[in-house]
Design a binder for these strands. Structure first.
Length: 482
RNA sequence: GGCGCUAUCGUCUAACGGUUAGGACGGAGCCCUCUCAAGGCUCAAAUAGGGGUUCGAUUCCCCUUAGCGCUACCA
């Protein structure tokens, strides 16, 4: 039985690194038929906000990966205190009455070596400790790291292998704050014990903390779970991703809003720090689930390759394009639709259905549909330069005769790909011009630009009336200028 | 400062002692072609440095260097 948890603290938005941790946990759980737990680690510092929690939910919701159990750490204070007290009663923790302010001074002074504990506090007699506590003197409950026979704390990490650290390098860390609230280490371990977590999969920034956690598990009389630490996601300069320094690229919602497909984005994130080792890159969620193992996770940090000009990693963009091409037309139309309407285009869904095949191989992000395909949904074309209507090696006169001929031909042509192609090719032969010289003015007249989807399909989707109207308009434009 | 982790093309990565060090993105070029894409082909591009071990090191060990993490009554 595998029970894993994703435990974000609501102090911002859903960070892409957190999203990846969530995904790896999910993949692991689903791969093994285990249980995915979402636990909000809101051990009460002032930084937690409901707004941030909602933002995290939005991110998770977009990814579309569901969880089986849900907990909020702030509901479980009693459990945390109970386990902390159990550790205290066993003599594995002690009260430290050192005032918080003094703590800081000390740290500055003793920064030469490792800070292990406040002298005197560790050895306080039970009587004095009890007396001072009873007198209401505030204290921090600290873990009594065993040092008498110095020993090593060791654990096996599924990614980093055997880890070991001497207790001589582990300080007496806090379990309970002076206000009685548990620290992260305490709350997290207590919950992991209570929720019977079997595998902790989390960021490598916790690798060093794990020694403390192993100590807590043991002191609480629980067997430590298995651990797997994930290499971190970093910015191109090697620094860790921060909103302040790197902007919106660190939030998953940015990717949603730009028109990434959740499956594509998950695919991208999975490829950072993990490899199926068979050169496969474009993978669906189901394929990822089947292929995912901790053995495929590597150990060095992965750079999310963005710049100011290119805010999205090119590989993420490419993968998104690949996933878009994998979509069936109705799915693509459904995914595109909101981006069209939010761009102010009145997008009748039947029309979106017809347009989707024409943009499928031409967009990398869904939001690009609004700029690539706007003319399908506009009644009147945005203004364009009439010079664009003039074909290669031609002049305004030629443009005009091409358009007039096209108009004539389109009045009677069968309005589908083959009919239009036959009609327009025949027209170009009759005019004794190259096909390109024939097609380009028609394209500009119909689309208002030189770069557009393939002509015949485009005209067919646009329909006879619109095409004729736009060609007439183009002829008018030419007359005005030339 | 202490402790720990990491180090293959610009980026993501493969190669669990023997390969012309592979793939992908991105870049360059060519082909296809009604524009743009998509697709196909080709090219440039890497084992951080120094010592060992070994018949043989990208791979194992040590040192150096660099980066990152932890070192809070944050998580």
């Amino acid at each position: 039985m595998h029970r894993v948890r994703f435990a974000p603290s609501p102090t911002g938005y859903l960070h892409i690194g957190s999203a990846r941790t969530f995904i790896f946990n999910w993949l692991f759980a689903r791969h093994h038929g285990g249980t995915m737990i979402l636990r909000i680690d809101d051990t009460d510092l002032e930084r937690n906000t409901e707004e941030s929690l909602n933002s995290i939910y939005d991110g998770l919701k977009w990814l579309g990966l569901e969880w089986d159990e849900f907990y909020r750490q702030s509901d479980r204070g009693e459990l945390h205190a109970r386990i902390a007290n159990r550790i205290f009663e066993r003599g594995m923790a002690y009260r430290d009455f050192t005032p918080a302010s003094m703590d800081l001074e000390d740290k500055d002074k003793v920064r030469e070596g490792p800070w292990l504990f406040h002298p005197g506090m560790r050895e306080l007699s039970a009587e004095e400790s009890d007396r001072r506590a009873a007198a209401g003197e505030p204290f921090v409950l600290r873990f009594r790291v065993p040092r008498d026979p110095e020993r090593a704390v060791t654990f096996q990490d599924a990614v980093y292998g055997e880890q070991s650290k001497s207790t001589a390098d582990i300080e007496d860390f806090a379990l309970l704050r002076s206000n009685g609230a548990p620290t992260y280490h305490m709350a997290s371990c207590a919950d992991d014990i209570d929720l019977r977590i079997t595998d902790i999969i989390r960021g490598q920034d916790h690798l060093s903390n794990t020694y403390k956690h192993v100590l807590i598990f043991e002191a609480a009389g629980a067997a430590p779970p298995r651990f797997a630490h994930l290499p971190l996601l970093v910015a191109p300069d090697g620094a860790k991703l921060s909103k302040r320094k790197h902007g919106p690229v660190v939030s998953v919602l940015t990717y949603r809003d730009a028109g990434f497909l959740p499956g594509a984005y998950i695919n991208f994130l999975c490829l950072l720090g993990w490899s199926p080792k068979n050169d496969r890159e474009v993978m669906t969620l189901a394929e990822l689930k089947d292929a995912f193992t901790l053995a495929g996770v590597n150990r060095s940090n992965a750079v999310v390759n963005f710049t100011e000009e290119e805010p999205f990693d090119p590989k993420a963009v490419w993968l998104n394009a690949e996933h878009i091409r994998l979509l069936a037309i109705p799915e693509l139309a459904g995914a595109m639709h909101p981006f069209l309407t939010s761009a102010g285009l009145y997008a009748d869904f039947d029309q979106v259905l017809r347009v989707a095949p024409l943009v499928r191989e031409r967009i990398k992000l869904l939001r690009e549909a609004a700029t690539v395909a706007d003319f399908f949904f506009l009644d009147k074309l945005p203004p364009y330069d009439p010079a664009e209507l003039i074909p290669q090696k031609g002049d305004a006169l030629l443009a005009r005769s091409v358009l007039e001929r096209a108009h004539q031909v389109l009045e009677t042509a069968e309005f589908n790909h083959d009919g239009l192609e036959a009609a327009l090719r025949r027209a170009s032969e009759e005019l004794k011009i190259k096909t390109g010289q024939m097609f380009q003015p028609v394209r500009v007249a119909a689309c208002g630009r030189k770069v557009a989807p393939p002509l015949f399909e485009t005209l067919a989707v646009l329909g006879r009336d619109t095409c004729l109207r736009r060609i007439e308009e183009a002829i008018r434009k030419l007359q005005e200028v030339y």
